[in-house]
């Protein structure tokens, strides 16, 4: 039971896909201008992540290694299209707001990354729990960023005016440059609060190519060039 909770909560903060693993940066920056859009994007990606992790984990022993990436992409694209069609039919305003970024969930690194790194190697239950944790982590990061940008950039929260702040907004926070600024501050804050040690993340074991790398070492050092800069 403890393992389940650990698996679930690791995605929220310790291995947050956006603020720690730095995946899904593009939709994070684009969709964090308003809280309602950020929540919509986060939950849509979470739904796709849960479904794709479930199916990929279920088929992990059937899918040949040679065609695993095309298979993952087909599965992920299918669920994205399903979410897109359902949203177009039942939540048209959110569909319009998310625009092209909804379709781009297909190429969201978080989803393909979790399929390749976790769902293809673990059981169905663990993969779903991992997807829930990572999806909520993505949603949480988007929510935090959007809250800062919308409240201080536009003086509103979910479209409702925030008294006092409304008169002292910082409009640049709504722009791309403001988005990068808030993103950087949040990453720094998470690193400071949870005392992450970046070197460990970039060791051989943390490398996405670890399974295939001929230079892989068991200790934390890496023979590849990646280790030089960290």
């Amino acid at each position: 039971m403890m393992k389940v909770w650990k698996n679930l909560f690791k995605g929220l903060v310790r291995e947050n896909p956006v603020l720690v693993l730095l995946l899904g940066t593009c939709p994070t920056l684009a969709m964090s201008q308003s809280v309602s859009n950020a929540l919509g994007m986060g939950l849509a990606a979470t739904a796709v992540l849960i479904c794709s992790n479930f199916v990929i984990s279920l088929l992990r022993n059937v899918i040949p290694d040679k065609v695993r990436i095309p298979c993952y992409i087909v599965v992920i694209a299918a669920f994205v299209t399903v979410v897109e069609m359902l949203m177009h039919a039942f939540l048209p305003s959110l569909y319009d707001a998310l625009g092209t970024f909804l379709s781009l969930i297909v190429v969201n690194c978080i989803i393909l990354g979790r399929a390749e790194m976790y769902a293809s190697k673990n059981g169905v239950f663990d993969s779903v729990i991992d997807a829930v944790g990572m999806g909520l982590g993505f949603t949480l990061a988007l929510f935090c960023m959007a809250t800062v940008r919308e409240v201080f950039g536009a003086g509103t929260f979910m479209g409702i005016d925030v008294p006092v702040i409304k008169s002292f907004t910082v409009p640049i926070l709504k722009e791309a440059s403001g988005g990068f600024f808030v993103f950087g501050v949040l990453i720094a804050l998470v690193n400071k609060l949870f005392k992450r040690e970046p070197k460990k993340e970039f060791s051989c074991a943390g490398c996405p190519s670890a399974a295939f790398c001929s230079l892989k070492r068991e200790d934390s050092s890496c023979e590849g060039k990646e280790s030089e800069g960290v």
């Binding site: 088929l59 065609v67 095309p70 298979c71 087909v74 694209a77 299918a78 299209t81 399903v82 069609m85």
Partner: peptide, 16 residues
């Protein structure tokens, strides 16, 4: 395997 996955996906999308 790839063809079967595509087929199932096509049926699912058609239904939705």
């Amino acid at each position: 395997v790839l063809f079967s996955i595509c087929l199932v996906v096509a049926v699912l999308l058609a239904a939705v």
